[in-house]
Design a protein around this nucleic acid. Structure first.
Length: 261
DNA sequence: ATTGTGGCCTGCCCGC
DNA sequence: TGCGGGCAGGCCACAA
C-alpha cells in the first residue's frame, strides 16, 4: 500500500506533470475532496495555472503551482495510485487492484497538451487537499536525524510501532515499513517507545534510514525482506523461527519472537 | 495531554 | 456457480 516508498515513486512520476498548463480539472467524487474543499473551488484554483514543483512530506504529495499559487495535496490511502499520461506510478500495489477502471478515477487534471494526471483509488481512502496544513506532520522518515527520531519516541509509553506510525511524530512510515524496520533492527514492536537505550535508538535510526532508502530504490513498501514471510506459517528469514502475528497499535503485526527484543 | 478503539471506504478471496 | 463474511490499513473522530 502507499507508504513513503510508493509516494516517492509518485512524486518522481509527477515531475512529468510540471510546466504544463492546466486546462481542466475533474473532481467527480465529493467524498474525495477533503477539509471542506469542493469541485468548483479546486477547479478555479488550478485551471489556467501550471505546476512547478513536486514535493513530498511523508505520505503526502504536494504539487506547487507557479508564482506561489495554490498547492495541491494528494493523499493515497492504501489503494490509491497516481497515473500521469497513462503511466502508473508503481507497477503493483499490495491490497489494491491492478485493473484500470474509469470509475476509480477520483480526481484528474488535464493539460493543454492533451495529457492527464489522475488519482485512481478503488477504495476511496485517499483524498485531495488544497493548500494542506502540514503543521501536523512530523519529520520525514527518509531524512529524519537521530535527534529527530529520539524526540519522536522519547517519553512515550505507547508501543514502539505505534509511535513510528504516528504521522504527527514521524511522517511516512506505514504498517509494512514499520514491521520491516523493527525486524531489521531487532526490536520488539510492543516495547514502550520511550524505553529504548541510546544504542538501540542509534540502531533503529540506522535501520530506518537504510530500510526506507532501500525500499524506495526497490519500488515499494511491499519489497521488504520480511514481507514474503508475513503470512500464516511464515518463518523469520534471519533465524528461521516461526513468526508471531498479533495486533500492535491497532494494526496486524508480524515479528520474530527470537531476535526482536 | 496521551493512548486506545472503532468506523469509514470497497475489491478480493475463501469457504460453502 | 453464486453468495456471504471476513480481511486489508490510512486516516479521523471519539472515549477514557
Amino acid at each position: 500500500m502507499p507508504e513513503l516508498p510508493e509516494v516517492e515513486s509518485y512524486r518522481a512520476l509527477a515531475e512529468r506533470a510540471l510546466r504544463r498548463p492546466i486546462v481542466q480539472v475533474d473532481a467527480p467524487d465529493a467524498w474525495f475532496l477533503k477539509d471542506g474543499l469542493d469541485a468548483p473551488t479546486v477547479e478555479a484554483a488550478l485551471t489556467g495555472r501550471y505546476f512547478v514543483a513536486a514535493r513530498r512530506t511523508g505520505k503526502l504529495l504536494l504539487l506547487h503551482t507557479a508564482g506561489g499559487g495554490p498547492v495541491l495535496g494528494l493523499r493515497f490511502g492504501m489503494t490509491g495510485r497516481l497515473v500521469v499520461d497513462g503511466r502508473a506510478g508503481v507497477d503493483r500495489l499490495l491490497y489494491s487492484s491492478d485493473r484500470d477502471v474509469a470509475a476509480w478515477d477520483r480526481f484528474a487534471v488535464s493539460f493543454a497538451d492533451g495529457g492527464r494526471l489522475l488519482v485512481r483509488d478503488p477504495r476511496r481512502l485517499g483524498g485531495v487537499l488544497l493548500d494542506p496544513d502540514q503543521s501536523g506532520l512530523g519529520p520525514d522518515a527518509l531524512t529524519v536525524t537521530p535527534a529527530g527520531l529520539r524526540s519522536a519516541l522519547a517519553g512515550s509509553t505507547a508501543p514502539l510501532k505505534a509511535r513510528l506510525m504516528d504521522q504527527s511524530r514521524l511522517a511516512g512510515v506505514g504498517n509494512l515499513l514499520a514491521d520491516e524496520t523493527l525486524w531489521r533492527a531487532g526490536l520488539d514492536p510492543r516495547r514502550p517507545a520511550g524505553s529504548l537505550s541510546p544504542a538501540e535508538l542509534r540502531r533503529l535510526h540506522r535501520h530506518l534510514r537504510a530500510t526506507v532508502t532501500q525500499l524506495v530504490a526497490r519500488g515499494g513498501s511491499h519489497t521488504g525482506d520480511l514481507r514474503p514471510a508475513r503470512t500464516a506459517g511464515g518463518a523469520c528469514p534471519k533465524d528461521g523461527a516461526p513468526l508471531t502475528r498479533g495486533t500492535v497499535g491497532g494494526r496486524t503485526t508480524w515479528w520474530c519472537p527470537t531476535h526482536q527484543r
